[in-house]
Each structure stands twice: as structure tokens, then as C-alpha cells.
């Protein structure tokens, strides 16, 4: 493989992996607090449609991104309310977020265009590549990493910041602890349920942001099934990443890389059909989970929060 090809594949991998990285890190934060949110796919697709609609009508990418994060957080708030306050099953509530989010997104896609019309096929503002002088002329990685859009650059800053928060600050330490033993954290005088609300919403906002990167940069515009299961891949990547931000990025790059190879193969006029090529990320998700699970069957050694998915209430703690 020529260096140019490697550079090009790496570039597409980063670009394609950005939405996954945000969504995966968001879900990892939520799960660390002890809440499992399977609504990532729904929050992402709602972020994509809202982000595009908001950017289209205001002409502002910033407003688009904020709207996407807002809607993601709002859906996550619903999940938090149903599972934390109403104590419903976290798995079913997450599925409900995804089912309702997918339905609502396709409804909004038909409705949020000009004059209550459809958004499909419209061209709106999109993030453009910003080439960073100097860095972008580094060999191989330069163009791949530093000729990207602003959402990608924010991700470069965001990953170490999240790492620092989780591992080097005291709220981060509490976050890690409340997913392991909420009663202990509560005993330290920290309102666990309130923080679980907050971290669930943070996860939702990040999923929304991931969705916005899809509709405002990766495949600009709105179409149904835009996310194509990326939200679910993110849920799987959380396990692959052992709930760690940097590994989440590595995992997302891996999947972005699959997209990139698909893209190159199609561009080179391969005889393999698009349907079969498109199976690759889904097959890979299963394989990755199988590998991670067989490497260690002990959940604790993988870093899963011990209290993940277990409802917590002060009066019924055991």
C-alpha cells in the first residue's frame, strides 16, 4: 500500500469515526454513572434531523449543533425520568427512546422543511475542512488528521479532557464510584440520583452531537436511516473500549476504517455488491464483541460498572 492510500484511509477513518467517538464516549459516561441507555441510536438520529433543520433555517452551524445536543439531552432526560424517577426497566426504556426517536425523526424529516414540507434532498450549511498550516504537512498523518472540520478538531481536545475529568478530578472519581456502589457515594453526601440525571443528559447531548456531525458534515443533508445503526455500534464500542475514552476513539477509528475501505473499494469499481460490503461493520461489531468476551469472561475485569443497570433508591438500598 502506498503512503498516499494509507493517509487517505486514515483521513476517512477519522472523519467517519467522529460521530461514533462522541456517541461512544457519551454512552460510556452515562454507563459509568450506573445508567444503561440503549437510546443512543434514537438520540443520534434525532440529533441529525434537528441539527440539520436548525442549521438550514438559521444558516448557523453553531445553532444546528446546539439544537442537536439539546434534543439529545432532552430525550436522555426522558430516559432518566422514566428509569430513575419512575423506576422502569432501563433496557426497555432505552429501546423505547430508539423506537420513538426513529419514528419522530422520520416524522420531523417530512415536516420541518420550508412550509411544513420535507427536509429530504435539501442542501443546507455544512462543516468545511479547515486545513491547519504546518501540522497538515506532516508526512502521512498530516493531511489525514489536520485537514478536517471543526467538530473533528473539537474531538481531539475533548478526548483528553474527558480522560482528565474521569481519572484526575474528584467529581470524576465520584462518577466512577457511583456506577460501582451508589450507596457508598450517597453516604459521602453526594446526591447520586441527581448526578445520574446529569450524566445521562450529558450522554444524550454527545449522541446528539454525533448525529449532527453526520447530517452537517459526513453525509450533509437529511435522509431516513441516516445513522444506519451507528448508535448501536456505539453501544457495542463502549464494551470494546472498557468504558475508557481513549479506547473509544481507537474503536471508532477501527469502524471508521471499515467505512473507509468500503468507500475506496466502491470508488475503485469493485465487483462485490454494495449490499454485501455494507454488512461489514455489522459483522465486525459481532466479531469484536465475541473477541472481547472470550478474552475475559469476567465482567469486572472488563471494567463494567458493577451497578450498571441496577435501579437505585435510597429507601430500598440493600
Amino acid at each position: 500500500m502506498s503512503l498516499d492510500l494509507i493517509s487517505s484511509i486514515l483521513g476517512i477513518a477519522v472523519f467517519a469515526g467522529t460521530s461514533l467517538t462522541y456517541a461512544t464516549i457519551g454512552e460510556a459516561i452515562t454507563e459509568r454513572s450506573g445508567i444503561l441507555n440503549l437510546g443512543v441510536e434514537g438520540m443520534m438520529i434525532m440529533g441529525a434531523v434537528t441539527g440539520f433543520a436548525a442549521a438550514f433555517h438559521t444558516g448557523s452551524l453553531m445553532i444546528g449543533v446546539l439544537a442537536a445536543m439539546g434534543i439529545g439531552a432532552l430525550l436522555a432526560l426522558l430516559h432518566a425520568f422514566v428509569t430513575i424517577t419512575l423506576r422502569a426497566d432501563q433496557i426497555v426504556s432505552g429501546l423505547a427512546i430508539t423506537l420513538a426517536g426513529t419514528g419522530l425523526a422520520s416524522f420531523l424529516g417530512e415536516r420541518l422543511g420550508p412550509d411544513h414540507g420535507a427536509l429530504v434532498g435539501l442542501q443546507g450549511p455544512r462543516f468545511r475542512d479547515v486545513v491547519i498550516p504546518g501540522l497538515s504537512s506532516l508526512p502521512v498523518v498530516g493531511e489525514a488528521l489536520f485537514a478536517q472540520d471543526l467538530v473533528v478538531y473539537s474531538m481531539y481536545l475533548f478526548i483528553p479532557l474527558v480522560w482528565f475529568y474521569i481519572y484526575r478530578t474528584s467529581p470524576g472519581q465520584q462518577l466512577r464510584a457511583m456506577g460501582e456502589s451508589p450507596a457508598t457515594v450517597e453516604a459521602m453526601g453526594i446526591p447520586v440520583l441527581r448526578y445520574r440525571y446529569i450524566y445521562t443528559m450529558v450522554g444524550g447531548a454527545l449522541a446528539g452531537l454525533g448525529g449532527a456531525h453526520l447530517s452537517l458534515a459526513y453525509t450533509p443533508g437529511w435522509s431516513e436511516n441516516l445513522t444506519g445503526g451507528r448508535g448501536w455500534i456505539a453501544v457495542a464500542l463502549v464494551i470494546f473500549a472498557s468504558w475508557r475514552p481513549a479506547r473509544a476513539f481507537v474503536g471508532a477509528l477501527l469502524f471508521g476504517g471499515v467505512n473507509a475501505v468500503q468507500f475506496r473499494l466502491q470508488a475503485s469499481g469493485t465487483t462485490i455488491s454494495a449490499n454485501l460490503l455494507n454488512m461489514a461493520p455489522y459483522i465486525m461489531t459481532i466479531l469484536v464483541l465475541v473477541l472481547v468476551s472470550s478474552a475475559s469472561s469476567l465482567r469486572s475485569r472488563l471494567g463494567a460498572p458493577a451497578a450498571l443497570g441496577v435501579p437505585y433508591s435510597r429507601e430500598e438500598r440493600t
Binding site: A96, L99, A100, G101, T102, G103, L104, S106, F107, E110
Partner: peptide, 8 residues
Amino acid sequence: SVAQVVQG
């Protein structure tokens, strides 16, 4: 898709 919204 109103149908899906109502069901959700």
C-alpha cells in the same frame, strides 16, 4: 410516520 410516533 405519525403512526410510529404514536406507538413510541
